[in-house]
């Protein structure tokens, strides 16, 4: 009798444990499968939507609660470089892009906990109202622990366990088409400790 009770109890415990672990893994590691990819950027058109599937809704609630639906704004996230390596404060990157077919856009750098990094340098975001374009029609921003000579800078100074970037595209025009070419490109310039 007791053996049977224990067996059912163990089955229930194992089942709940598996369910919790698989749900956590789905949100932590499987999130990319619920997203569209444009180069290294990930995007969910269903973010904030009443038609979002349960997994997309859960991912967005964890990482972008109070996101606007695609009718109003599009969100693109970048957590890896073009080689698939997590973004690191040990590296210096250049983010560059053409003008976007939208009313307003911004790029914000977030620490791994999804909040602004504790940098103390007020360099968490760049946006369309303050960006300057170079002679070739593209804007460029340095993503690094220090500004150097860069006109635009996103500080990764105290992002000790990695960071990510979010591109916000508000009131995109009809001409706006997300693609690896139309979205900003992140180039790794150098990494501390890397072989020359």
């Amino acid at each position: 009798m007791w053996r049977r009770v224990l067996a059912w109890g163990a089955a229930a415990l194992v089942g709940v444990g598996l369910g919790v672990a698989s749900a956590w893994a789905a949100l932590e590691f499987g999130r990319a499968s619920f997203m569209e990819r444009y180069g290294a950027w990930t995007h969910s058109r269903a973010a904030g939507s009443v038609g979002a599937d349960p997994y997309t809704r859960a991912v967005i609630a964890r990482e972008g609660l109070l996101a606007l639906s695609a009718r109003e704004a599009l969100y693109f996230n970048l957590a890896e470089d073009s080689q698939g390596r997590p973004l690191s404060e040990a590296c210096v990157y250049e983010l560059s892009g053409p003008p976007l077919e939208t009313r307003w856009w911004s790029v914000t750098l977030y620490a791994r906990d999804h909040f602004l990094a504790q940098n103390g340098d007020h360099a968490a975001a760049i946006d369309a109202t303050r960006i300057r374009y170079d002679g070739d029609g593209r804007w460029r921003a340095r993503v690094a622990p220090v500004r150097g000579e860069a006109a635009h800078w996103l500080s990764s100074r105290n992002t000790h366990s990695g960071f990510s970037l979010t591109l916000r595209v508000y009131n995109p025009r009809r001409e706006f088409r997300a693609s690896a070419e139309s979205l900003p490109v992140l180039t790794t310039l150098n990494c501390a400790g890397a072989a020359p």
Partner: peptide
């Protein structure tokens, strides 16, 4: 397994 699916 059934409990795992439901709790997931």
């Amino acid at each position: 397994l059934a409990i795992a699916v439901l709790s997931h």
